[in-house]
Design a protein around this nucleic acid. Sequence first.
DNA 1: AATTGATATATCAGTAATGGATATACTACA
DNA 2: TGTAGTATATCCATTACTGATATATCAATT
Lengths: 117, 117
Amino acid sequence: MADTSVKPPFKITPVVFHVLLAMSEGDAHGYGIMQEVEKRTEGSLKIGPGSLYFTLNRLLEVAMIKEGAGAATDDARRKYYRLTEYGRAVLESELRLLSDIVDLAREKAVLRDEGVA
Amino acid sequence: MADTSVKPPFKITPVVFHVLLAMSEGDAHGYGIMQEVEKRTEGSLKIGPGSLYFTLNRLLEVAMIKEGAGAATDDARRKYYRLTEYGRAVLESELRLLSDIVDLAREKAVLRDEGVA
DNA sequence: AATTGATATATCAGTAATGGATATACTACA
DNA sequence: TGTAGTATATCCATTACTGATATATCAATT
């Protein structure tokens, strides 16, 4: 079993987590991340430009993300970012933690199943 | 299908979430919550007394939790709390959101399975 | 080609949340 | 009876976040 625990240099807050997750599929740009996170969390997490660009810069500094390129980018203003291996490791580590917590909660039947096959 | 979305009067941060979750099994007291959360999150979330008692008081104010009683309480100093129905609804709502995100991430294979039967 | 609204990045200030220090007191045990 | 651990509580410095603001570009309409 591989050791998947990674110690990031700062706390992986919900904002940081969702920014990383938004890039897990491929290159993403700031504005798109803002919109996707709000949609994905059903509005419960809205990342303002302040948090977003602060977070992106910090992720760049510690090389969890790097500059990327949007496939056939139309809009020249967009800046695309992508996960580095390190960034993906951090994301996976965090996700695994989250996954364990969800599993635990399910065991406790905090979540009462509704139609989970 | 019941509408499980609940709109809490403040943000359900990781600290708030874990405090609620710690009470999902039954009555819990502050110090115990601090320890359990640190253990459960493998040390990645340490709730200091400042956050803890601030959080507990706020949860009491909005009636997500209420005072409880430890079964045959030995230590008289302990103050036990338990979830109200409202508190449990908030917890379930948040958990479902988290669960969906974890599922989504799994679909994307951000989490590469290792021995998931 | 000018106007307009949405897109997009960026910074800043005010607010909210958190962590750590500190205080106080009780418990258990040697 | 001393001391380490348990337990609640408050305060303050730090950190994180939100929302306002600024600036500029793009797309669509006219």
